[in-house]
Design a protein around this nucleic acid. Structure first.
Lengths: 356, 356
DNA sequence: AACGTCTCCGTTACCGCTCACGTGAGCGAT
DNA sequence: ATCGCTCACGTGAGCGGTAACGGAGACGTT
């Protein structure tokens, strides 16, 4: 196998990227302007601005006043060039609107703030092109990437991009990049065995439809098939319904599922959003939850506590996920080799509520 | 009244801000290193990296290979210094975990992406100190601020900071800064008159407790009092319960409310999170919704559709809010004076669902 | 043969700022 | 008077790139 495709640095500027630069831009007020206006040298202005010593308090005040009046603001580029202490991390998420990601983001922001790091956020919608584009952006704009990447090509590109990179959810792939692994395997097994122990046999899965057109490994589905097989429960195609990753997607998939297998007694959903949509639709169609059909989600979103009945789910500590990823990023920046980064694992935890 | 306090530029470096710079940092590979290694000049390397013309294809490839092998990555600072085309906006939100903000963020990210702008995100929790600190950060790190600011001092500081600044929700304040105004006034009136038209008289309000210890104007509360007064409905203190801005906060406030006024027939909540918590707790305590007590939220979060019964709410187009703010930011950067920025207004829209 | 014209590459000059020094004034000590 | 020290400030270099221009060599033209 050839080594992972290496980012072609030339690609960065090609095509897409061409920021709209406002016109009529006022020319920048520089430190020199302030210096001339106050009759001192650049260095003295710098001392005033940065609150350093070796400057007369009166002079400082004079300079500060002038700077303010002139609308002077130090260039972050010039400053960053000489003081190499501003660290920016690029956080790549799939969908801000899925509550999963804000929780991860909360963890990342918190850990970043503790370190005084900046966080630039990018949203990909898990689109193939967007993921690839974002990696170019990261390459140019940040010191380290922390990303959810769905497509293998994107991961390969990130791996060859010469940029420190941490994967949120390395799940099931060859360890091309360091990152955090969410143990979907143990989670899925835990959840399904719980359902089985409660007497369920006709267990359907509502899968994320994105895997249909992708080579990305789907641990949850694989484990579902495996566990069903182990228990001698046969599942034909109708038992796995692809769903758009949203409440509405879950609802639609549930309808299809019921059309195929009216006798389903339990639904294992790819995640909470899908589970919630499915459960809602099932109830609307007259099924009692959990008596007629039980629902098991994945993620442990807090919204699961608000629906009726509250959703049983495999809880992931998403906030911690974000924090750990930043810690790993810190290791990378600290000079630790990619290979030396210890793999962090997040264990899903079954939270039994009323939907099962 | 004195003019708004002007940001003391010296404050930027004082105290808090001191990013943790990793140790063992590998020294940066610069364009010069690549140039020497390949026996060409910097300029030629630059041509190769940036995919420009006037370079032999073979030379380009040789340089690219070397650059990759050496782990070269152009400095965004050096580049930004000479090419003034990278624009970064600083998005300041109160709480990533409140679904309101991810929706706004989605709008901001989308509008920013269209322009090729970067978005740095900061979370304040609406804490007084954090808000002030964040403004210092913005001053150093971004080209324009787009922010939710709760505290008047923070707004004043932002106004004097010499940094283009857009307020998400300028609501009710002196127009110290341009931004978007969410018309809570008309929204509140709309919602309350709807409740009244449905025969409700004993209408309580679950207010955000943050206003207790703040000078920030509270349009929703003021309008509540005003409308009640107009209708000749008397409200004593017990009818307004402060709640922490969260589901749990809403639940706790609802309990206090019921202790004070068991005969309440409708609850007007500061926002959806509080409304949902209150409704959930009310049902748990045996009240029927809406028969015994109706609930009206504010925000139009999509989670409101998932609870039982679905929440009636005053919907705010949060995504558009974010987009509009970025458009205004673009105007500012384009040279438009603060005063010339047209005020954008977002009108809440009553969405009647089953909780009323 | 002399001249333009490409092609490819190097040189110079910045971009705006900070760091490490250097410098002169003022002042007490010797 | 000389030295040494502190204080307040200036000077030069350089951070890592890119833009603008210049120049050598290869090639075709007249």
């Amino acid at each position: 196998m050839p080594p992972p495709a290496v980012r072609d640095i030339t690609k960065g500027r090609r095509g897409g990227y061409s920021p709209i630069v406002p016109t009529n831009r006022k020319p920048r007020v520089t430190i020199d302007h302030v210096a001339r206006a106050t009759g001192v040298s650049r260095q003295t202005v710098s001392r005033a601005i940065n609150n350093k010593t070796e400057i007369d308090p009166e002079t400082r005040q004079r300079i500060l006043d002038a700077a303010r009046a002139m609308g002077y603001r130090p260039s972050r580029f010039a400053r960053g060039l000489v003081r190499q202490d501003v660290i920016t991390i690029g956080l790549v998420i799939a969908d801000v609107l899925n509550p999963f990601f804000p929780e991860v983001t909360a963890g990342v922001l918190q850990a970043a703030e503790r370190r005084g790091w900046q966080v630039v956020v990018y949203n990909t919608g898990s689109e193939y092109r967007k993921e690839l584009e974002v990696i170019d952006m990261l390459f140019d704009q940040v010191d380290v990437g922390v990303a959810f990447l769905f497509h293998n090509d994107a991961i390969a590109k990130a791996a060859g991009a010469n940029l420190p990179f941490i994967l949120l959810d390395t799940g099931g792939r060859a360890p091309a990049l360091p990152g955090v692994r969410i143990d979907f395997e143990s989670g899925t097994r835990q959840g399904l065995e719980y359902l089985i122990s409660r007497g369920h046999r006709r267990i359907a899965m509502l899968d994320d439809e994105m895997y249909l057109s992708s080579e990305a490994p789907n641990t949850r589905r694989e484990l579902y098939l495996k566990v069903m097989d182990e228990r001698g429960i046969t599942v034909d195609a109708g038992w796995i319904q692809p769903a758009h990753n949203s409440v509405e997607g879950g609802a639609a998939a549930m309808e299809r599922l019921l059309a195929a297998h009216r006798d389903v007694t339990a639904v294992f959903a790819y995640n909470d959003m899908i589970a919630i949509g499915a459960q809602l639709r099932a109830r609307k169609l007259g099924l009692r939850v959990p008596e007629d059909c039980a629902f098991l989600g994945f993620d442990g979103l807090s919204v699961g506590e608000l629906v009726e009945p509250p959703l049983t789910t495999l809880h992931i500590d998403k906030r911690r996920l974000g924090e750990v990823a930043v810690e790993q990023a810190a290791l990378l920046l600290g000079g630790t080799d990619e290979g030396e980064i210890p793999e962090a694992v997040i264990e899903p935890q079954l939270i039994v509520r009323a939907s099962t």
